[in-house]
Design a protein around this nucleic acid. Structure first.
Lengths: 134, 134
DNA sequence: CGGCATCCCCTGAGATACTG
DNA sequence: CAGTATCTCAGGGGATGCCG
């Protein structure tokens, strides 16, 4: 790869960059099921802090994947849902899910456990309800 | 999500976690084309430092996606290639690539540029040869 | 209810120098 | 050629407290 060659941007790197902050995929996964209030996401995306949830939602909104609707009520109500672009991620997330499921199924469970700190009692990341399919 | 409910691990989060270190997807993308020497990867994965390349390859090998073959020669020769598991990522990366390409195509180029620091002269990340398809 | 503002810590990653 | 070994630093992300 010469330095003076014209370059372009790797599309798969773009996608990974957009999805790779710690909680985003779990948030998107939840929103794939349908519109959701902020507090619902806090409950369902197990382990996410309020700061990270807010921050992730903001970025997802800036990226055009999520839309935010505020109802002028007291107490306030805010609903999050996927945009068309967000929904277009469904097959992507599905493929990621399938590959991951196949990977863990064939791997040494101990390796997977240590690799992702599943043992640590404090670790809530990656957790989803048992037997929940995408 | 109750605290006492049995939990399982989100497969798509696993996949994202495995691919989301800064250079991995570009390395894998390169290895999808075929076996490669260390120095070839250094040239072709534009902008990767020698430390990050070594480190990423190590992790990919530990994850069982990449295999490393050393030839007992002087000077040494080391070739990297994808394992079967690594190759099974091809459709995954293809989907990521398609989605990313579609995303940037429809987005405001200025937004994309600022979002990913494409303007910064020092930024080499994400760069691939012009007109190179997956 | 749905956030912001702070403080703080740890790790991912860059830069540089050295080795079998 | 294909790596190690250090040092360094920015910023991702946790914890806590306050606000409209």
């Amino acid at each position: 790869m010469k330095k003076d060659e014209p370059m372009s941007i790797c599309p798969c790197a773009i996608t990974i960059a957009m999805l790779s902050s710690k909680w985003k995929i779990l948030i998107l996964r939840e929103l794939l099921k349908g519109t959701c209030r902020y507090r619902d996401l806090r409950e369902r995306v197990f382990g996410v802090s309020q700061k990270m949830l807010t921050q992730s939602l903001k970025e997802l909104e800036a990226d055009g994947l999520v839309s935010r609707r505020i109802y002028p009520e007291v107490p306030p109500r805010v609903e999050y849902s996927l945009t068309d672009d967000g929904n277009s991620l469904r097959p992507v997330i599905q493929v990621l899910d399938d590959w991951g499921a196949h990977y863990v199924a064939e791997k040494d469970p101990d390796y997977v456990a240590t690799r992702f700190n599943l043992d640590a009692p404090k670790n809530n990341w990656m957790k989803i309800p048992y037997n929940e399919s995408l």
